[in-house]
Design a protein around this nucleic acid. Structure first.
Lengths: 206, 206
DNA sequence: GGACTTTTGTGATATAATTACTCATTCACT
DNA sequence: AGTGAATGAGTAATTATATCACAAAAGTCC
């Protein structure tokens, strides 16, 4: 993924140049924490390769997945947090080996004035994230866990282009914001219904 | 509430003038639907007096409260939806008699270019809404209903500057995304614990 | 005052989440 | 290969929520 694959930046070599000039690149290994909750935000990340999962934690450490940030996207939460000199309300973890271009906050506001494309980019992502968040609200408020679990597995499979997933029940439970036992039981049930096939560390969609 | 009570517009009579020139005012009675789900958005609302509650619905018509929009604030969801020519993903209802200044979408983008204050205003509200949404996610994902219910009653009381609330159990259940019986039972329990006092259509915090 | 509507209460039952375990497998280390 | 720690998965009991069906008040309207 290059900056010029991002639709808003395609026809503006100037902004790409500036972004590259202002930004610095960092690489994260799978599972590495990119941003932890309550950390101060000094730079906006743009994911160039890989993907990030963004989680919300409660006081007791329980977590729930909010959304994924894929290549070409930015973490809009950081953007707002950064602008308002606020701390992060979410935790971001590299889902796979991930390369990120960080743009320092002070440059970010500068770019807004100079390049309308930059603002378009930010607004587009905002829109997307907001809708995803609403979907999460809907899911946890109204959907039953079995439905959510199945949907989640399918989404993960799509993301990895594969119909076997290598995750533990524990991981699934965490991302869904529930307990492992619950996931285990539901998976068992789904296996009996012939929807999935289970193995240690392994779930295959049928 | 006047436009010049909004911090970002305080020192810019020009933007206040433009907003008033471009916008049109409408008044809504308590309970009136201002924006329904899937409606197209043609204008951005700024609440001048009163307040709005923003709800999310699922396919079967169940609802849950996302947040309130108070005087001086705007509905940021409409803003994004409007910019991207998308439909509304939420439902907005007047919580009390409410007066709204609507700014047509095409003017909105125009104002962004002209007045940085306008953008600051939008970003500030975004930030606020995003955090509120995260709080909702937290609450429904991790908190028990009794805790949510009590917190909700307290918030409502704060909003109305009063420690007696005039609502039915049904209404509370709707905003919390649960069933009336559940709310009734929990309230009863809370009354026994001396936390509240109940009456028909009435809940008083102790 | 009687008929009706709205709001609230109660009991029985189903479903889901939580807690506290046990058992099984894997892996690192000797 | 054998031991023990760590991780992953299964089970049973308990608690929390949701659902259904209906009864009892409280308020409204004629």
């Amino acid at each position: 993924m290059e900056l010029n694959d991002i639709i808003e930046f395609k026809s503006s070599p100037q902004i790409r140049e500036k972004l590259n000039a202002f930004g610095f690149v960092k690489t994260f290994a799978e599972g590495e924490v990119i941003l932890s909750e309550n950390a101060y935000i000094k730079a906006i990340p743009i994911v160039t390769t890989g993907s990030i999962r963004v989680m919300r934690q409660d006081e007791e450490g329980r977590e729930i997945l909010l959304y994924y940030i894929k290549a070409g996207e930015s973490c809009i939460m950081s953007f707002l947090g950064g602008l308002h000199h606020d701390t992060s309300k979410v935790k971001a973890i590299a889902e796979e080996e991930t390369e990120i271009l960080f743009i320092p906050i002070d440059k970010v506001s500068l770019l807004i004035k100079e390049f309308p494309e930059w603002l378009d980019y930010i607004f587009r992502l905002y829109h997307k994230r907001f809708e995803e968040l609403l979907e999460v609200v809907n899911a946890i408020a109204f959907k039953k866990l079995d439905e959510r679990l199945l949907g989640f597995i399918k989404k993960k499979c799509e993301l990895t282009q594969n119909h076997t997933l290598y995750v533990t029940h524990e991981q699934l439970a965490n991302e869904l914001g529930t307990a492992r036992v619950v996931v285990s039981r539901l998976l068992k049930q789904m296996e009996e219904e012939g929807l999935v096939k289970l193995g240690r560390n392994k779930i295959s969609l049928m």
